[in-house]
Design a protein around this nucleic acid. Structure first.
Length: 547
RNA sequence: GUCCACGUAGCUCAGCUGGAUAGAGCAUACGCCUUCUAAGCGUACGGUCGGGGGUUCGAGUCCCUCCGUGGACGCCA
């Protein structure tokens, strides 16, 4: 909440106490901004909420409250009762304009807040197997996860961005075999890829890179040894490619956790032993099962197969336990929709191991369907036809790619129309916002803004709209962090840009016949510029000074 | 079949964890550049919030049910 809202809320709570002799619980008094500004700058529904408690008509309650409020409210110049019992407030223009200096003084830090209160939170996202290039689904998850972490950091959470590398197990063996087969093929030899091998172009490219380094050294060596070599090399190079692609996409991770490392550090065995010891398991058909149904899963899950190998689940449990052991209180995972069914068993494991049931939250990233010229393009890592992050970015740019993914809630299916994104890139909403930024910069280049003591002339409708919206920024950031919805930042950006463009259209900002008004408006522009830049930064989109 | 999401304007989507007359963009129609960036502004058109019940002062939002779409239901990862 900003200063204005805090003052308002305190006064309302005080009035409630004085009028009805009840102490309002936190959350009872709600302040909101009416959609229609003919209903004031702020409004509260407290009279309706009290109707039941006080056993009275909302209108009567509102009247009593307003009488009290009018006598001790300093920052409002009008209070009104409307509709079924809403109390509407009109804030003094001078109060609203105070935000300009708040923003100018805070600069890059405007938007920063401490709603997270230092909560240690670990966000795991992307986590694609190092067996191929990142595709559109990953692009969605990467943009979303990265933006969430920016929001969390801005809101005072102690946030770690982590990538879990599935670099152990069957799929990595298949990678080794695939690279080996490509290697042999490159010497003109007959070699078939394994049935569930990787057919992507990246494997061929990686093979070529390796070949440059080792030449024909592995042509005549025993297959087992060669595959082992190609597995390790392939893994390393695939991972490097992923890292480079993510960097290219402006996503940086704080931590890369390797499944193999978790295995090597004996964490998987330890977790397995502990689960057995805690009586969470049983043996059946030569396998060891986790009684996950006792913790809400719809069937029990195998931890150790009858052939002695662990399933995918077991190292992942160790992975999650390790997160808690590092002191993280809250775990957030971003998983693809195809992992949906996996949530229940992981939550079950965490609960069974004695960690809080709600300590893990999984946000599902719905599928992205690629459409081109009206036809769906099937994307599959295996067929090699997938559109990679890099191709996408080269095609439409980091800014619009990131903006596009982040602007839509992740839990809804999304059609990505590539031909549209390409041909209409100038109509992409991201340009609308960036254009506003460039316009502001252009004006400020003509005449720089100064910090002033008073902003009493900013009273037109367009100016007030802008001021109110800038005032809201901190609220939007903390709310977006709490609900992990960076799309709210996009909405905010669109609206801010819209208020600016509208203001720009209605008023000539630099007006030499009115130097005072011009100076105040320039300061307003500077505040708008800072806010817009900070907002764009939260979703990893650049703010160009010229377009 | 069972479980989980989603369904809002012709299209793509918002809708602040129950609030006042449901909002943008695109598309369509019409205005606005001798004036700080027209990648812009303004006006108009466009809705049974999938259907039906329920909860309450009040439902796009919560509950039930049906329909539709997608996903998950391996000793795969």
């Amino acid at each position: 909440m900003n200063n204005i809202e805090v003052a308002l809320k305190n006064n309302i709570e005080k009035a409630v106490m004085e009028c009805f002799n009840i102490t309002p619980e936190p959350g009872l008094v709600m302040i909101e901004i009416p959609k229609d500004n003919s209903n004031g700058d702020y409004s509260t529904n407290i009279a309706m909420r009290l109707a039941k408690v006080v056993r009275s008509n909302p209108q009567v309650i509102a009247k009593a409250l307003v009488e009290k409020l009018e006598s001790n409210l300093e920052n409002a110049d009008k209070i009104e009762i409307a509709g079924p019992g809403f109390i509407n407030f009109w804030i003094k223009k001078s109060e609203l304009a105070g935000v300009i200096n708040t923003v100018i003084d805070a600069g890059d830090d405007y938007g920063k807040n401490n709603s997270g209160n230092g909560l240690k939170i670990l966000v795991e996202y992307v986590s694609a197997n190092p067996t191929g290039a990142l595709h559109l689904g990953h692009a969605r998850g990467a943009a979303w996860g990265d933006s969430i972490c920016r929001l969390l950091k801005k809101s005072g959470y102690d946030c770690l961005r982590e990538y879990y590398i599935n670099d152990a197990g069957h799929q990595i063996d298949m990678l080794g075999e695939s690279v080996y087969a490509r290697y042999l093929q490159s010497f003109g030899m007959e070699a078939a890829l394994p049935e569930d091998g990787y057919h992507g172009a990246d494997v061929i490219e990686i093979t070529e890179e390796i070949k440059k380094d080792v030449g024909d050294k592995y042509l005549n060596c025993p297959k087992e040894e060669a595959v082992k070599f190609f597995r390790e090399e392939g893994k390393k190079r695939e991972l490097n490619r992923i890292k480079n692609d993510l960097k290219y996409y402006r996503c940086e991770f704080d931590s890369w956790i390797s499944e193999q490392k978790i295995v090597d550090e004996n964490r998987v065995n330890l977790v397995m032993d502990k689960m057995v010891e805690m009586g969470l398991t049983y043996e059946k058909d030569g396998a060891i099962w986790f009684k996950s149904t006792e913790y809400g899963d719809d069937k029990d899950r195998v931890l150790k197969k009858s052939d002695g190998y662990y399933t995918y689940l077991t190292p992942d449990i160790a992975n999650h336990v390790y997160k808690f052991e590092r002191g993280y209180e809250k775990l957030v995972n971003l998983w693809g929709a195809d992992h949906h069914g996996y949530i229940a068993r992981m939550k079950a494991a965490i609960e069974a191991m004695g960690y809080g049931k709600d300590a893990l939250e999984v946000d599902i990233i719905q599928m992205v369907r690629l459409v081109e010229n009206g036809e769906e393009v099937k994307m599959s890592k295996r067929t090699g036809n997938a559109i990679t992050i890099r191709e996408l970015v080269d095609d439409i740019g980091v800014d619009s790619a990131r903006y596009f993914f982040v602007s839509r809630a992740v839990d809804t299916h999304m059609d990505f129309d590539l031909s549209l994104a390409r041909s209409q890139s100038n109509e992409n909403p991201v340009y609308y916002a960036q254009y506003a930024y460039a316009r502001i910069c252009s004006i400020l280049r003509t005449k720089p803004a100064q910090r002033l003591d008073h902003y009493d002339l900013l009273t037109s409708e367009k100016e007030v709209d802008l001021l109110k919206h800038i005032n809201e920024f901190v609220n939007v950031v903390s709310e977006a962090a709490l609900t992990r919805s960076p799309n709210k930042i996009c909405n905010y950006i669109q609206k801010l840009a819209q208020y600016f463009h509208s203001f720009y259209g209605a008023h000539k900002i630099i007006d030499d016949s009115q130097p005072e008004l011009t100076a105040q408006r320039l300061a307003l522009l500077e505040a708008t510029r800072i806010t817009l830049k900070n907002a764009l930064d939260l979703i990893g989109v650049s703010a160009p000074e010229k377009m």
